[in-house]
């Protein structure tokens, strides 16, 4: 599958014209991205540490899942919007960056895992589930999102 055309299109889009022209706005969007990542990371941490019985153990799991799911969804939206804005300024460079692709693979995996596996599984609470399944799901979720953040930081270095 050849995806270069998407990046070429993004590189010549109006958005890219704006993101390349205004350095100050770019820096502010980076801040939005960082704060969104923190929100996402914090809520993922609370959610998965609860599943591992390491945090907020006196609060019922469904209650923790309800709040964290809401804020994770909000963070995913802002992280994506600010991410696309930043990508438009360096689209062609990103296409040739291996950390970028590692991050995108992780991000897609994280989305699918949350919406298709984790939340549907926990919909009826954890009481009827095998505790080892719950632990594995929590560790997998932490692994994915840690990896997305770390490979994302590495984009700027490589």
């Amino acid at each position: 599958m050849e995806l270069l055309f998407i990046f070429e299109w993004l590189d010549t889009s109006t958005l890219a014209g704006i993101s390349k022209a205004y350095g100050g706005v770019f820096a502010m969007v980076q801040t939005v991205h960082l704060v969104s990542i923190a929100l996402l990371g914090g809520m993922v941490l609370v959610s998965d540490l609860r599943l591992l019985n390491l945090l907020l153990t006196s609060v019922p799991v469904p209650q923790v899942m309800d709040t964290t799911r809401k804020w994770i969804t909000i963070a995913l939206i802002t992280v994506t919007l600010s991410g696309v804005y930043q990508a438009s300024a360096v689209a062609i460079k990103l296409y040739h960056n291996s950390s970028f692709w590692a991050k995108m693979a992780g991000f897609a995996m994280g989305l699918l895992f949350l919406y298709v596996v984790k939340w549907p599984l926990l919909r009826h609470g954890v009481d009827s589930l095998n505790p080892w399944t719950v632990r594995l799901v929590a560790v997998a979720s932490l692994t994915i999102w840690f990896s997305v953040a770390a490979t994302g930081r590495w984009i700027g270095f490589s």
Partner: peptide, 29 residues
């Protein structure tokens, strides 16, 4: 990278606490 990843842990949990204080998260707790 350590600075940014621990920022994620620190600020993420700070946001979770502050959002509770704003009445926007974990309102049942």
């Amino acid at each position: 990278s350590t600075h940014v990843l621990t920022l994620m842990v620190f600020l993420g949990l700070l946001l979770a606490i502050d959002l509770r204080m704003l009445g926007l998260a974990f309102t049942g707790t």
